[in-house]
Nucleic acid binder design. Structure first.
Lengths: 193, 193, 193, 193
DNA sequence: AATGAATGAGTCTTCATTCAT
DNA sequence: AATGAATGAAGACTCATTCAT
């Protein structure tokens, strides 16, 4: 029984259920475009008392962090796999498409991805892990001459958030998503001459 | 007697001065990064009563619209000049750099630029005017083979907002601004093959 | 028109009325033994909105201060007159009876009188003024040999609060008040031999 | 089988230990000047669940009563000894000094001593016992002409609380304690004619 | 008997908007 | 036309008490 995992494990069955419900409702609220995350409302929707929400998440931010930690780690794992692709350019492509999908599905995810400073050290750690994977991929891509020299992992993250933003602003159908991502990918090539 | 025109015409000198002050303060607030736009605060800073603010702008949104209308028209004018450039690609370049500067200086400007629906018909009209100019430029650029065929004026607007977003997320120094805009410009070229 | 008085004067008629109502209700609450001073409740009882209460008194403490300032100054004025009595012992007697009446009528008054540290400088100033008057009286009384040498103005204040406390604890009829005050006055005489 | 007795008797060893811990923590809290007595906090500090606290003490008041009962009985015992002093005035002196020490050490103690009505019959019984001892002492002192005729046991209790209050309001060093108690003792002598 | 998660009424505080002056 | 006091709905958070485990 890992000590870290234990915290989750020893949670009483009903407490765990409530915690999950709250996270679930919060996620739905965000997905529905309501980023106010009112703890009272969430409590009502989750069918628990306000106090229960506050017990699990002392403030709005803690809730957001929890929401993100879940998704982000999951994503970082996938990202690392994608980053190992033999073909660096293809790997980058896959990685970005990957991240974009996540960002489009989860507004909170995009928010973290694109913020300069993190409130929680765990978030920063995960972001660093992600940047490390991207940096490796970029290095290989640069060596292969398929990516311009003046962009770094950090820039990739920010540009991706920009694309996500562009897609969200207006009809965010698949065609636009594909087009905007493609523009980014083409723009990342070393400029002619 | 056009009602719209009358409002502007009959404005007493002091009323006009108050209106200008309110807009000025609101602009400063936004520039200072405070996008809450509390009308009470603005009134205090402008040295007028809240009631006065409400007389001129029935609600927060009206204030935002007014703020934008001012800037936007000014921008559209400049844009039309830029769009007339002989060299279509150079014109596009200038136009985007132009817009980007505005967007970085004025968060509200970027918000309008990137929103799918407008609250005020005048805004839509100006946006249409802008898109018309960009569309012409794009047509010429496409004919010259320097821009991919699958992007429209609307996409340009959205992508630009994306770039603005990327620049704002983190250190928004000149280097990043130039780099991200360049990535966009390169990405807009017709893809190889 | 004195500047100090003006603040009160320029208060709009209705604002002044509301402020007075709030103070009135707060005073009644305290008198009724409820020292929780819930601003919402006070607002309701005063027939004004919560916001109005908050406009006049940003927090509970400000309300208390206002409540006290009113009474205290009024009392200090009277005290100074009483302190000027030719017969020092009689003056002290009158002064204490005087203060006791106030303290019994207004719990807040007693609270300030008996607290070692004040939150508001004005309160400290008034207290100092009071102590000055008492000190003069004590000096004369000591010279006349009718008060023990080891008590100071500060002690008088504290002992009086003690008496007030004793009177409140139980039936606080006039007999008890007279008796306890008399015990104090006798106790203040120089001890035999 | 007396229900009251049973409760004490059948208390399991661990239950008794928990009860004692809770009382201990509550006492410490009060001593530390925190008279909010939050049962959740006490439970945490005592290392038991809230439920356990509630099992032993159905509400905050019951806890207070229990806290006091302990001390009070202990005090009454000592008081009865002190009251048996040959020299009535000396006995009174010792008794009051005695009570004062207790009251200064234990704010709850003073609260009970000075309250007109008790929540628990046991408290009233103990208070009656105390008053009986004091009354005897007073009778003897009056007969000896060393205490005024118009004070009763009840008054002694209340005046003592007054002194305690005075001592607490400000620097409560030994000098002040001695002085204020002395003022009371002198004040209790029969007034000169 | 013990635990501590859950509850939700209760309180504080802010701020967009109205309206008497 | 201007003022700013008043309003009160809305949101954040606490804590005494209950009850399933």
């Amino acid at each position: 029984m890992t000590p870290g995992a234990e915290r989750e494990t020893t949670l009483r069955a009903d407490a765990a259920r409530n915690r999950a419900r709250v996270l679930q409702v919060a996620r739905e609220q965000l997905a529905a475009g309501d980023d106010s995350l009112m703890l009272n409302t969430i409590a009502r929707l989750a069918g628990v008392g306000v106090g229960t929400v506050y017990r699990h998440f002392p403030n709005r931010h803690a809730l957001l962090e929890a929401l993100l930690a879940e998704r982000f780690q999951q994503f970082v794992d996938e990202a690392q796999v994608a980053a190992a692709d033999e073909d660096a350019r293809a790997g980058l492509h896959r990685l970005l498409r990957f991240a974009l999908e996540h960002a489009l599905n989860d507004a909170g995810f995009a928010a973290v991805l694109g913020s300069a400073s993190d409130a929680d050290a765990r978030t920063s750690a995960m972001k660093a892990e992600l940047d490390r994977a991207v940096a490796e991929l970029l290095d290989r891509a640069r060596d292969a001459g398929v990516v311009r020299h003046d962009v770094e992992a950090d820039d990739i993250r920010r540009l991706l958030c920009g694309v996500e933003h562009a897609i969200r602003s207006g009809d965010d159908d698949a065609r636009h998503a594909r087009l905007y991502l493609d523009v980014l990918l083409e723009g990342l090539r070393p400029p002619p001459r």
